[in-house]
Design a protein around this nucleic acid. Structure first.
Lengths: 130, 130
DNA sequence: TCTGACCTTCCAGTAAACTGGAAGGTCAAG
DNA sequence: CTTGACCTTCCAGTTTACTGGAAGGTCAGA
C-alpha cells in the first residue's frame, strides 16, 4: 500500500496536488484501502514524473492530459507529443524574441541614464533620461 | 478629442482593457469631455503600445507599471531611476536566460521525437520522448 | 488513553489579466 | 423621434494550477 503522501513525495509533489490531478483527470481514481485511504500502484510515480517533466517543459496540464489519455487508450502518443513540442518550441522562440526586443528598449533607457551626471539631476525637474 | 474606443483600437486593445489599465495605475486618469467621456492625448497610443510589447514579452502589468512610473515620476532622483532600470534589465536577462534554457530542453525532447520511431515508444515509460 | 501524523471531503481563496453583462447616458443621422 | 453606436459605472465570472483551512476519521507508539 502506497499512501498518497508517500507517492506524492516520491514524485516531488504534495498530496493536495495529487488529489487535484485526480480531479482534473490526469490521475485515474486510486483504489481505496479499507479505511478509505487512497492506495496507489507503483506506476503512479512514473506517471507523476511524466506530468512533472511536461510541466517543466512548459506544457499545460490540459496538454499533458491529452497525451496521457491518448496513451491510456493503448496508442503510442509519440507523434502527438512531437507536435506539441514543435508548437511549444515555436511559442518559446517568439517569446524570447519579444523579450529580447524589450530588453533592448529598456537598455537604451538605462544607458541614457548611466551616461548622464547624477549630480546634475535637478530633483524639481522631470528626469530627462526617460 | 480621442475617445476610448478609438485610442484602444489604435493600440490593438479594447476599451475595457484601457479602463482596466487605468484602474491598475498603468494609465493616468484621462481628462473628461463635458459629457463624461474619457478624452485621451495622442501619446496614450504609444504608451499603450509599450504596455502591449511588454505584455507580449511576458512581463507582468506590475513590472510594466514599475517602468512606466519611473518614466512618469519626475520627482524621483535620477540615480534611483537608473537603479530601477538596472533592476528591470536584470529581471529581463534572467527571464530571457530561463526561457532560453527551457527552449533548449524542449528542443532536445523534440529532436529525439523527430529522430525516433513512433513504434519504439515504451509504454512503461509512457513516452520515451519526454 | 492520548498525542501526532497521517488520511478524508468540501469549500474558498490566490494571482494575473482580463471579459461579460446589466443598466443607463450621449449624440449624429435618417 | 427613434435607432444604433458609442460612452459611463459597477459587479461578477473566467482561466490555470494550485494552496489553505475546516471538520472529521485512522492508526501506531509512549
Amino acid at each position: 500500500m502506497i499512501r498518497i503522501g508517500e507517492t506524492a513525495a516520491a514524485a516531488g509533489l504534495t498530496a493536495k496536488t495529487l488529489r487535484f490531478y485526480e480531479d482534473r483527470g490526469l490521475l485515474p481514481a486510486a483504489d481505496r484501502a479499507p479505511n478509505g485511504y487512497r492506495d496507489y500502484p507503483h506506476e503512479t510515480v512514473s506517471r507523476l514524473e511524466f506530468i512533472r517533466r511536461g510541466r517543466t517543459a512548459g506544457l499545460t496540464l490540459a496538454q499533458i492530459g491529452d497525451i496521457l489519455s491518448v496513451r491510456d487508450t493503448g496508442q503510442a502518443p509519440c507523434v502527438h507529443v512531437k507536435d506539441l513540442l514543435a508548437n511549444q518550441l515555436r511559442d518559446l522562440d517568439a517569446q524570447i524574441a519579444e523579450l529580447t526586443a524589450l530588453r533592448a528598449t529598456v537598455a537604451e533607457f538605462h544607458d541614457a541614464a548611466a551616461a548622464g551626471d547624477p549630480a546634475a539631476c535637478d530633483p524639481e525637474r522631470i528626469c530627462s533620461y526617460l
